[in-house]
């Protein structure tokens, strides 16, 4: 009998790798070490490759047999590696799912400033009137006496323009007391049909719980052929319903403003109570709250701006934006609007 052939020795050596690899990788628990072990056996200079260097010296007839053993060992090791890596991945995934974050901690703050409530209300009012074809117009806040008064049928000696109501800059220049001069400026530069809304600051010498020396009005003006008082009512009714998102009624009462005739005070149904007779501080139990003034454009105004009073009619209305915000958001003191108090501003 002869010694073991070189072929048999090589096969035995290769077969031993299988067990050895199992032993090497058994304690390993991270991917890098397992890949290292794999390279130690299967790499270019790994144990299998080393063992196979003798292949050229073996009898050619034995070579396929040795090669097959080597391939089997390789496959075994690779599958072992894959299995172990799979186990590790699974364990890692499970470990990750064991993670617990205290989700009740506060959110990461995102920048959160607010538009002033008067800006929000103003933009919304503009939007509602835009649906009816009204575009925004504006004019200066320091205004001429002529635009603010004279052209609006309020001549110098008119009882409705007492010195104590108006801030004067000079004899003929005032802080506008209403947004109505924008009507005048628009009609002077634009031919009918006209439909504008003019929001803006106005100034009156008045300062108490419900009056601020500066406040915001929104003025509406429509001039066209055939506009009537019924149209004015319709526009105001549409606005009130849209703004309060409720089916509220409006009531027009005869009133006097020099630049409209017929003139009206506009009331809407009280949003704070169930109607007349309810104990209500806001409407004094009448069921109605005043929201502004309105009327058909006075022919004297048309004459000042040279619009044909026979061909055209028009209506105008004005409302206080503070008032609308007060009614919708329960703001009970006008001074909050202009103090820059963050405790107020951040609420809306």
């Amino acid at each position: 009998m002869s010694d073991l052939s070189a072929t048999d020795v090589t096969i035995a050596e290769l077969d031993a790798f299988e067990v050895e690899f199992s032993r090497v990788i058994a304690p390993l628990s991270d991917e890098q070490a397992i890949r290292g072990a794999q390279a130690q056996f299967l790499g270019k200079k790994g144990k299998v490759a080393e063992a196979m260097k003798v292949l050229g010296k073996l009898p050619p007839a034995d070579r396929p047999k040795v090669g097959a053993v080597a391939n089997r060992i390789k496959a075994t090791i690779e599958s072992e590696v894959a299995r172990r890596l799979g186990e590790l991945a699974q364990a890692a995934a499970e470990a990750d799912l064991a993670r617990v974050v205290d989700v009740t901690l506060p959110a990461r703050p995102v920048p959160a400033g607010r538009l002033h409530i008067l800006s929000q209300v103003r933009l919304e009012m503009i939007e509602i009137f835009a649906e009816l074809g009204f575009v925004v117009a504006d004019g200066p806040q320091i205004e001429t006496d002529w635009h603010n008064f004279e052209a609006l049928a309020l001549p110098k000696d008119h009882p409705a323009r007492d010195m104590q109501d108006t801030f004067y800059v000079s004899e003929d220049i005032v802080l506008r007391t209403h947004t109505s001069p924008v009507q005048v400026r628009t009609m002077l530069t634009q031919a009918p049909p006209i439909r504008i809304v003019a929001p803006g600051f106005v100034y009156r010498r008045d300062d108490d719980l419900t009056h601020s020396p500066m406040f915001t009005q929104i003025e509406g003006l429509a001039v066209d052929e055939g506009l009537s008082f019924a149209d004015l009512k319709g526009v105001l009714l549409h606005f009130v319903k849209r703004f309060f998102k409720r089916d509220l009624g409006i009531r027009l009462r005869p009133s006097y403003f020099p630049f409209v005739e017929p003139g009206a005070e506009v009331d809407m149904q009280c949003v704070f109570c169930a109607g007349p007779g309810s104990a209500c501080r806001v409407c004094k139990s009448t069921g109605w709250v005043e929201i502004g003034g309105a009327g058909m454009v006075d022919p004297d105004v048309f004459q000042h701006v040279k619009i044909d009073t026979e061909r055209y009619t028009g209506f105008a209305f004005g409302m206080g934006i503070e008032r609308m915000a007060m009614l919708r958001h329960d703001i009970n003191d006008i001074k909050f609007y202009y103090e820059g108090d963050v405790r107020f501003l951040e609420q809306f």
Binding site: A130, S228, K233, H238
Partner: peptide, 23 residues
């Protein structure tokens, strides 16, 4: 109108006769 009563006037919406201007 004030003798007839403002409340007697039935609301209407004026027709849109011209596209609003560009601003």
């Amino acid at each position: 109108l004030r003798m007839v009563g403002y409340e007697q006037i039935v609301s209407t919406l004026p027709p849109l006769r011209q596209a609003p201007g560009v601003r």
